[in-house]
Every structure is written in C-alpha cells, then in structure tokens.
Design a binder for these strands. Structure first.
Length: 441
RNA sequence: GUGGACAUAGCUCAGUUGGUUAGAGCACCAGAUUGUGGUUCUGGGGGUCGGGGGUUCAAAUCCCCUUGUCCACCCCA
C-alpha cells in the first residue's frame, strides 16, 4: 500500500506537522502546570539496566515478564564480575527517576525534590486502541515527604492538567490504599488462604492470577468469579493504624481541595512498588482503555535502589488515551490548539513576477527573516505569479510581497494584505517596520 | 501470547453472478488573453488492486500461504 517498502514499526506512528499541535499543547501544559506546583524538569536516559526494572516493577508483573524492549549487553556478556545483563528501554518513568534521585545523592543533601518529565516509553505489547509500543507519558515524582497532603496535591495537579486541556466533569478520580508492605503481605497471605481451596473452580485467567498476583482475582470481570469473591478478606481488616490514618487524612485533604474521589477497592496497581495511596483517573466513555492516569505512593522504592528510606509519590499520564478522549470531546480543535498550529504559518510570502525577480524575492525574504518573529517564505518551484498567490493563500499567509520589474526600478515592494485585499507600495527599507506595524494592528 | 475483521490512487472509498485499456470524490500539477489568491470550469500526472502461489480461456473478484493493519482478550498509560 505504501509506496515505500518500509513502514513504521508495529505499534509506532509518525507524528506529522499537522498532528503536532495537540501534542505540543499537552507538553506545554504539563510543563507550565508542573512549574506552577513547584516541580522541576528531569530527564533520565531512555534506557536503563534491565535489572532496575526487574527490581522495581516485580518479576511477576506483566510489564517485566513479557513487555520489555531489551537489548543484550555487548562484548562482556559473559563477564561474571558485572551484574549488567542488558539494557531495557524504559516501560515507565518512575524507576529511572528514582534511580537518578539516589545516584544524585539527593536523599542526603536535599531530600525534598519535586520533579516532572515528559517523554517516550516503550512496551512490547500487541497494539490496539489507545495502546502503542512507543507512547508518551507526562509524569511527576515527589520525593522526601510522607504527608498525605502531598498525595492530595499530586492528585490535584493531575486533575488540573486535564482541566487545563479542557476536560470537565467527564473525568473520575478513583482512589484506594494498598497499605504498608507488611499490611500487604498479611492481606496477600489471607487471600491465598481464602482462595487456595476454591481457585480450581474459577476461570483460567484466575488460575494464572492466583500464582502471579492474587490481588487481581478481585477485579476479574467474569461473573462467576465475582460471585466467588464474596466473603474474601478485605485489606481494611488487616490494615495497620498508620496506613489507615494516612488514607483518611488523604481523603480529607482531597475534599479540602474540592476534589470528589470515588473510593474503589478494586484499584490494585500492577506494579510492586506501590504503598498506601493509589489512584487512577478515568474517562469512562473510552471503554476498554479508560484510564488516562495512574499513580500512587511508593515509600520503599528509593531504599530498594540503595538509598535511605525516602517516602515518595507520583503519577503518570498517558498521552495516547488522553488524545483519544480529547478527539471525542472535540478538544483537539480548541482555541489553544489552533493557536499553536498558527505559530507555524508564515507571515509573508515573497512573490516574484519574472524569472529575473527571483533572486530579489529570495533576498527580500532573507532580510525580513532577521527582523520578523514569524516565518517568511518564497517560491522555489518556478511557479507563475498566479500560482504563487494560490500557494500563499493555501498556507494562510497574511501578506504577499510582490517583487516585479516595476517595483525593483522604484526600489519598492507591493504589500498585499490577503485578508483585506488592500495593496500598498512600500519603500524597500521600510517593509519590516511596515509589516510589524500591520501585524500589531 | 489468544481470537475476530479488513487490505483497491497521497486520503476516504466504489468496483454488479470472475469478462475488454481498474473508477469517483478530495488532494496535487497546469490552463481559462496583458503581473495577483480563496468560488467555478477544463485538462493532466499518479495504482505490480499488500506480497507469493494455485484454479480458469479469463482473477481486484474464487482457494491456499504470507505480511501488515485495526478491534477485542490478558495487562496496562
């Protein structure tokens, strides 16, 4: 189908100029909002030692067990003195950022760090609606504070992001707690004891989950399995006092911020590092892939990476699903997006009448570029004057500058305003000032 | 990894029970008397009908294989 025999790798897409305005809007909003909340940008590498992700995400997680883009280490592959077996393109941002936090010595010299990042992530998955092998995430990570008010502020920042993009009441924040590690261990044990005698009667997926991650038995969509969940031990039964207090204070703080979270016990994040607060933001109309954002607290991760015990909380927003939701709500054509698209429209097109005029039109464009903020272009395809006007119109250019034999003889240029169709003759030396003034008005 | 649908021009798609040089709209390029745009009119370029094999006098159309895409499951942003 394509004229080229090469195609973009499965699960990736080319972002052409015409599609980039929406993405830029998301990037700029992320950056502006993060700074407003006191977060600074961090850029860790796009790939890390494979072991980093094994350690942080958990070897049984789907991400690690079947979705990693990994390249083997070259040369010293058999070097037993090195623990590095290979490198993996980051499937998520938290692990790399936490590693950078430890390596930078922040835990000792300035424990409180609030960081954000925007960039590509990679997962070797079967692509489908809202899911790609290379996708972009905007994430924030706040280290060094254990207070539930920080959890609430993080959720607020997340919601503010969507509000700035133009979302309204369509979004839903769902929150839950995973407890502290000891709570989770107790809960896990209780669940295993509860389900061990009955797992054989459940669906094949659940048999898998029982071995891999018992928590997931709880959100199985199979009706029979849901019924079977009746009477299973709840985390709240084994939740420690500290984690419990954290959760109630977190909810209070959210209310103080005017947020109305839905407490949803089925939110059990798939990654090992979460503790206490977990949350997701959903756009329910999106169906299968309705989660736009996932996040939570991970108080043990920094320690896991060799740093001192450091509480931390963060989230990641996926642009792919966000773009889909935006398109559904018409937000991809918002004034903000259109104004970004307009940035790449040239302000002027220098038309040459005869072949002899071409070098002069080219030179005029060149001179104007140093004086004007917006782009100035001219023809390079030997088009007729009429065709040049057509192209200028197609580009949406505001002014056409006509360079012909008459104008050259007079040391002037005809400036045509494509909106009003007014034409005025302007001295060569005053064109930049003329255009600047006309653009202001 | 499992299942389903689809694959014709740059894009969106027609193509009747297999039958002559495969079409439309949009886009692109060029014209419609003298140096000027958005409408209209005329003309033009562009397709190994995803690829390979088979059935047939004849295949875009039927069969097999292959590659790719989309959708869903698992799981996740």
């Amino acid at each position: 189908m394509a004229s080229s025999s090469y195609q973009a790798p499965r699960g990736t897409r080319d972002l052409y100029p015409e599609n980039l305005a929406v993405i830029r809007h998301l990037e700029r909003t992320a950056s502006r909002l993060s700074r407003a909340f006191g977060y600074s940008e961090i850029r860790p590498p796009l790939f890390e030692e494979t072991g980093l992700f094994l350690r942080s995400l958990g070897e049984t997680s789907d991400v690690v067990s079947k979705e990693m883009f990994t390249v083997p280490r070259r040369g010293k592959a058999n070097d037993a003195s090195s623990s590095v077996t290979g490198y993996t393109f980051r499937p998520e941002g938290t692990a790399g950022v936490a590693r950078a936090y430890v390596n930078g010595g922040f835990a000792q010299r300035a424990p409180l760090q609030k960081w954000f990042y925007v960039g590509p992530m990679f997962r070797y998955e079967r692509p489908q609606k809202g899911r790609e092998r290379q996708f972009t995430q905007f994430g924030i990570e706040a280290f060094g504070a254990a207070s539930p008010t920080l959890d609430a502020e993080v959720v607020d920042l997340c919601m503010r992001f969507f509000e700035e993009i133009g979302f309204g009441d369509e979004l839903e924040v769902r929150v839950n707690t995973m407890g502290d590690p000891s709570d989770r261990d107790r809960w896990c044990e209780a669940l295993r004891q509860f389900f061990a005698p009955r797992v054989a009667a459940r669906c094949s997926d659940c048999q898998e989950r029982f071995e891999r991650n018992v928590f997931r038995l709880l959100d199985c969509k199979n009706k029979a399995c849901q019924d079977d969940n009746e009477g299973s031990p709840a985390l709240s039964e084994v939740l420690g006092v500290d984690a419990q207090t954290h959760q109630t204070d977190f909810l209070k703080a959210l209310q103080a911020l005017g947020r109305k979270p839905v407490v949803d016990p089925t939110i059990v994040r798939g990654l090992d590092y979460y503790t206490r607060t977990v949350f997701e933001v959903h756009y329910p109309q999106l169906g299968a892939r309705s989660a736009l954002c996932g996040g939570g607290r991970y108080d043990g991760l920094v320690e896991e990476f060799g740093g001192p015990h450091t509480p931390a909380v963060g989230f990641a927003i996926g642009f792919t699903a966000t773009e889909l939701a935006m398109a559904e709500l018409g937000l991809d054509e918002s004034a903000a997006v259109q104004s970004i698209a307009a940035e790449s429209i040239p302000v002027a097109y220098c038309v040459s009448i005869t072949p002899d005029d071409r070098p002069h039109a080219l030179a005029l464009a060149g001179r104007l570029r140093t004086h004007l903020a917006a782009a100035v272009v001219c023809d390079h395809r030997e088009k007729s004057p009429k065709a040049q006007f057509k192209e200028a119109n197609k580009l949406g250019v505001r002014f056409v500058l006509v360079v012909g034999p008459d104008e050259r003889a007079a040391g002037q240029v005809v400036v045509r305003d494509m909106q009003t169709r007014d034409e005025t003759r302007v001295e060569l030396l005053q064109i930049a000032a003329h255009l600047a003034a006309a653009t202001e008005a």
